[in-house]
Amino acid sequence: MIQSYFSSVKTALILSTAIKHYHITREMVKDLEGYLRIQASLVDNGQMDIFIYVTSNLKITLEKYSFHWQDKDKKLVMRWDNAPHHRELENFPHHLHLEGETRPSTEPHFMDVLRELERRLK
């Protein structure tokens, strides 16, 4: 189940109009947990760093994640993550970092993040 989920992430990166190429820096798949770390180069010469840690018990659960998007000058554009450091926000621990601010967020699906990237890079 986890291997299939990771395969769908990699396929989406291959098919995306926003991704120039990507490199898997770490992938670990066990029966009940999986870890995936990817660096993706974007068509505008920016970069997306993807970190996904999932568990599986009849369904995939996104336990930890970070989708860090930076421009070609390495300046943060957006980062979705669930690091537990913004307890004051609704929907803690899920949040979105933008230039100079942090907003509450819902747990993102990877495809939603990729669609937002494609929409903004059109």
Results as ranks from 00 to 15, higher is better:
M111D: 11
A83N: 12
L62I: 12
N57M: 09
Q70G: 00
D112L: 07
K10E: 15
D31T: 12
E101K: 15
K122N: 13
E101V: 14
V43Y: 01
E88F: 13
A12F: 00
D44N: 15
P108K: 08
Y35V: 09
V43F: 02
E107I: 09
S41K: 13
Y65L: 01
A83T: 13
N45E: 12
I2Q: 05
Y5P: 02
S41D: 15
P108V: 04
L117C: 12
T17V: 09
L89R: 09
T106W: 08
R119L: 12
D73T: 10
D31Q: 12
L117W: 03
K75Q: 15
F110R: 05
E118Q: 08
R103A: 05
N57D: 14
R87T: 13
M28F: 10
V77A: 01
I19M: 06
I50P: 02
E99M: 05
H86K: 11
P108A: 06
H97A: 01
L117I: 11
W69D: 00
P84H: 01
M111Q: 13
R87M: 10
R115M: 12
F110A: 04
L15V: 02
G46D: 00
D71R: 03
W69Y: 08
V54A: 05
P104C: 06
L76T: 07
K30P: 00
L58H: 13
E99V: 07
L58M: 11
K30R: 14
L58G: 04
R120V: 14
Y53G: 00
S7Y: 08
T61N: 15
I52L: 13
L42Q: 02
S16V: 03
F67P: 01
E88G: 07
L13V: 05
Y53P: 00
G34Y: 01
L96C: 09
H94T: 06
H109T: 08
M48S: 01
G46T: 01
A83W: 08
Y65M: 02
V9S: 01
L117K: 01
H95P: 05
F67G: 01
I52T: 05
I24V: 15
P93Q: 08
P104T: 12
S105K: 05
L98Y: 00
I60H: 07
P108W: 06
K72V: 09
E99G: 14
Q47L: 13
M78F: 11
R87N: 10
D112W: 07
E107V: 06
L36F: 02
H94Y: 12
P93G: 05
E90I: 15
S4Q: 15
I38Y: 03
S7Q: 15
R37F: 08
M111V: 10
T61S: 14
F110I: 02
P104H: 10
Y22E: 08
